[in-house]
């Protein structure tokens, strides 16, 4: 057997798998350009008879206000939970207090709870603290349930940094926040990118928390998208156009920042 595998042969499985990954995308895009009477299961692979933007216009009319809600929700939610995660990760990796090794897994366990199970106490709690119905309550929810994964990521990232750096700063008399600010923060960008993208996607795609915690005027786009379907008749072409619009921001993030996301992950940020 030759030492070098035939390079061209490697592309064969790659292309087959690529097709597998692109099939659903093809269906979404093709369907979203069709008129309603062209939409049928039997003709799902056919190209639309013409480029028809009506579906996007219809979907946009219904979704636009909620798109803005989603942005108002996702940006602070991602930033705040990343900032918290970074500070937690720093303390739990490099500025340990007695019991830190118990606190870390205890925080982490929050990642694994099935969210459907906490809806009722969550709604009641949000009512009690008067944050029910609006975006701040939903932001708070995303920030809190984001703490475990962001803390984990940053802690693992910081754990790989030589402790000598921190010790040196300590000896120089730097306090905790100074050390964090001067030593760790400047090298944290890869981890921030990973965590921000992760949280952005999670909050953007969330449906469950949004539908029970917000009023109609504050609904993010996922809930509005869900509402485009009635219980009687589903206009799949408009629905697909809506799904495409709703997924576009996260898709763009992955297309343009995916490299950095991967780079961050390769740098060890998300290696459990």
């Amino acid at each position: 057997m030759s030492l070098r595998l035939n390079r061209l042969l490697l592309y064969l499985p790659l292309i087959v798998i690529t097709l597998f990954f692109l099939l659903p995308l093809y269906v979404v895009v093709v369907t979203s350009f069709k008129s309603f009477d062209e939409v049928s299961l039997q003709r799902m692979w056919q190209l639309p008879s013409g480029i028809n933007f009506d579906n996007f216009r219809l979907a946009w009319e219904q979704l636009a206000p909620h798109l803005w809600n989603s942005i108002k929700l996702v940006v602070p939610a991602a930033l705040l939970s990343s900032a918290l995660g970074s500070l937690n990760g720093f303390v739990l990796a490099k500025w340990k207090f007695p019991g830190a090794d118990i606190v870390f897994p205890a925080l982490l366990f929050g990642m694994f709870i099935p969210y459907q199970a906490v809806l009722i106490p969550l709604v009641q709690f949000m009512r009690t603290i008067d944050l029910y119905g609006g975006l701040p309550g939903l932001i708070l929810t995303h920030v809190i349930y984001g703490i475990p994964i962001t803390t984990l990521t940053f802690r693992n990232f910081y754990a790989a940094i030589p402790s000598e750096l921190i010790e040196a700063a300590r000896i120089d008399g730097a306090g905790m926040l100074q050390t964090y600010w001067n030593i760790l923060l400047p090298i944290s960008i890869p981890a921030f990118v990973v965590v921000l993208i992760w949280q952005f996607t999670a909050a953007w795609n969330d449906f469950l928390f949004a539908v029970v915690l917000t009023n109609p005027s504050n609904w993010p786009i996922t809930v509005a998208l869900n509402n485009m379907a009635g219980s009687q008749i589903i206009q799949w072409n408009v629905q697909m156009a809506g799904a495409f619009l709703a997924a576009l921001p996260t898709l763009l993030v992955y297309i343009f920042l995916g490299r950095y996301f991967l780079r961050g992950m390769l740098a060890g940020a998300l290696k459990g």
């Binding site: 206000p65 008067d130 944050l131 119905g133 609006g134 975006l135 701040p136 009023n215 005027s217 504050n218």
Partner: peptide, 16 residues
């Protein structure tokens, strides 16, 4: 600001 809003929680209309 939402504290004042939340009195009318659930009463906002769907249209912006």
């Amino acid at each position: 600001t939402t504290e004042t809003d939340s009195g009318s929680a659930g009463e906002m209309s769907e249209t912006t």
